[in-house]
């Protein structure tokens, strides 16, 4: 197996606050892994550096072997990273269908077309519907995005990311704020999507059922540093991790 994403001594600080400290790890192509850690451990900040929303002070971030540090999010997304956000990042006044469709039109490079109505673009419509079906959102296609339940908004966010056919998908707390039933459904859905879309998946999560239920590998961050890395079993039995994080949970 080849590494799709490699972090080499990535360091980021805001003034005297070191939010990412010398973090190094490799994500293998096709794996599904979790990043856990207490609030403020720097999990989202790490994602932001991978996707170009923040620049690390030092270190390298290699995507398929090529350093992407210093590139804009647009450039990085074009190289095969997708991302869903902690707070669903949608187009609230558009329909659920159009939220996915605008991504499909982007992918097909049809967003400059200004004459025929959006409905006339069959290929984008079909693709959007098929993704909504995979997410179980097809019955809500005509509703406005802001009317959706919280959990469904997060799924829609993932749907938008999937359109761009990422090889590597980053999910920031996909089940945060969900009810236990929603969590269960989302957990199974994410596992299904991982297989169906042939993804490499990295997710940040506080829900331990999800972490230990579907991740093949778990990485623990604490105060910006990588505290441990291993299989779910190894992490469960790691004394440091238990003291630092799991013990409290």
């Amino acid at each position: 197996m080849k590494a799709i994403l490699e972090l080499e001594s990535v360091h980021k600080s805001f003034g005297g606050l070191h939010v990412t400290q010398n973090v190094s790890f490799s994500v293998m192509s096709g794996e599904i892994s979790a990043i856990i850690g207490p609030n403020g451990a720097g999990k989202t900040t790490l994602f932001n550096q991978i996707t170009g929303h923040l620049q690390p002070n030092s270190g390298r971030i290699l995507l398929k072997g090529r350093d992407v540090v210093g590139q804009s999010p647009q450039k990085i997304v074009a190289q095969g990273i997708g991302r869903a956000f902690q707070i669903a990042s949608l187009f609230p006044d558009e329909t659920v269908l159009d939220n996915v469709k605008v991504a499909c039109l982007s992918k097909l490079d049809q967003t400059r077309r200004f004459w025929r109505p959006v409905q006339a673009f069959r290929q984008a419509t079909d693709r959007a519907y098929s993704i909504l079906e995979d997410l179980g959102l097809e019955k809500q296609a005509d509703r406005l995005a802001f009317e959706l339940a919280h959990g469904d908004q997060k799924l829609l966010d993932i749907g938008i990311a999937l359109v761009l056919e990422p090889q590597l998908l980053l999910l920031d707390e996909p089940t945060a704020g969900m009810s236990p039933e929603e969590r269960q459904r989302t957990r199974e859905l994410i596992k299904k999507l991982w297989k169906a879309y042939d993804l490499t998946l990295v997710f940040i999560e506080h829900d331990m059922d999800m972490v230990f239920g579907i991740a093949e590998k778990v990485r623990v961050l604490q105060l910006g540093a990588l505290l441990a890395e291993g299989t779910p079993d190894e992490i469960r039995n790691n004394k440091e991790v238990v003291t630092a994080y799991l013990g409290e949970a």
Binding site: S72, S89, F91, V102, T111
Partner: peptide
């Protein structure tokens, strides 16, 4: 026609969430 074309949809998306538009590679 422009307002209801893909270009028009893209413009509405730019208004609602420019960050996300960038992350669609646009």
């Amino acid at each position: 026609r422009m307002a209801y074309s893909p270009f028009g949809l893209m413009l509405r998306c730019v208004r609602q969430n420019p960050e996300r538009v960038r992350f669609l590679g646009r």
